[in-house]
Simulated assay, not measured.
Amino acid sequence: MDTNTQKVVVITGASQGIGEGLVTAYRKLGYAVVANSRSITPSGDPLVLTVPGDISAVGVGSRVIEAALAEFGRVDTLVNNAGIFVAKPFTEYTDEDFDRVTEVNLRGFFEITQHAVKAMLAGGGGHVVNISTSLVDHANTSVPSALASLTKGGLNAVTKSLAIEYAARGVRVNTVALGIIETPMHPAETHEALAGLHPVGRIGTVEEVADAVLYLENAQFTTGEVLHVDGGQSAGH
């Protein structure tokens, strides 16, 4: 394989749902994929390297990027898809809730993104895509989500910060802010109620999320953008 031309994407939270859909989408685009999650199993595809590990644990983010460089020689894109959502009234969150949500959503972003950006700078550029939630911009009385807003709001903010810091060095940074997407996290019997949270009257699909990420992948003049894929949720209700 010519590692000079084979583009490489690293995807966290890649074993199911949106992450699994992103692996498929990037393979169709011709990318080699480095897929991480806590429980991911080996792939039969030689261009999909699976690296198990809890992205919130110290050392795992650097290990994932090192594995990508060892196997494929470069990192072109990082999709920070791993995330955790705990909906509770603010006063009922526990210290354990706080630690777990911040560890996954913030620390899980921090270490792997540092190492990915270093690899991208060495390779002449790249792209970071973060996955966030429209609840940051459009809070909802029926979905108490202070910890999601605290952490994912941080990702929205750092998207702009890093986009500007690295704009002249060829690294773009964007975010996709989601409404509710049809994944294994949401049982089928909840879909009808969840659809009502979106002005368009339905929940989104994994393929629609992948379409948005790939749009940003190909949008070379777009950086620092928070793209809402939420059925109109962030616009109003």
Rank of each mutant, 00 (worst) to 15 (best):
M1H: 09
V10S: 02
A25G: 06
A25Q: 06
R27D: 02
A35L: 07
S39I: 00
V51S: 08
P52W: 02
D54S: 13
G61H: 05
I65G: 02
L69C: 07
F72E: 04
F72L: 11
V75E: 03
L78Q: 02
N80H: 05
G83A: 13
I84N: 07
V86R: 10
K88P: 05
K88G: 06
P89K: 14
E92T: 14
D97W: 01
D99N: 07
R100V: 07
R100D: 05
T102H: 12
V104Q: 03
T113F: 00
L121Y: 00
G123Y: 13
V128C: 07
V129P: 04
I131E: 01
T133Q: 10
D137S: 15
A139G: 13
S142T: 14
P144W: 08
L147G: 05
S149R: 15
V158T: 15
V158Y: 05
L162E: 03
A163Y: 01
I164R: 15
I164K: 15
A168K: 15
G170S: 08
G170W: 08
V173I: 13
T175G: 08
L178G: 14
L178E: 09
I180V: 13
T183H: 08
P184R: 14
P187F: 02
T190C: 04
T190P: 00
E192H: 12
A195V: 09
G196N: 12
G201D: 06
V206R: 13
E208A: 11
V209L: 12
G224R: 08
V229K: 09
G231E: 09
Q233S: 08
S234K: 11
A235H: 05
H237E: 10
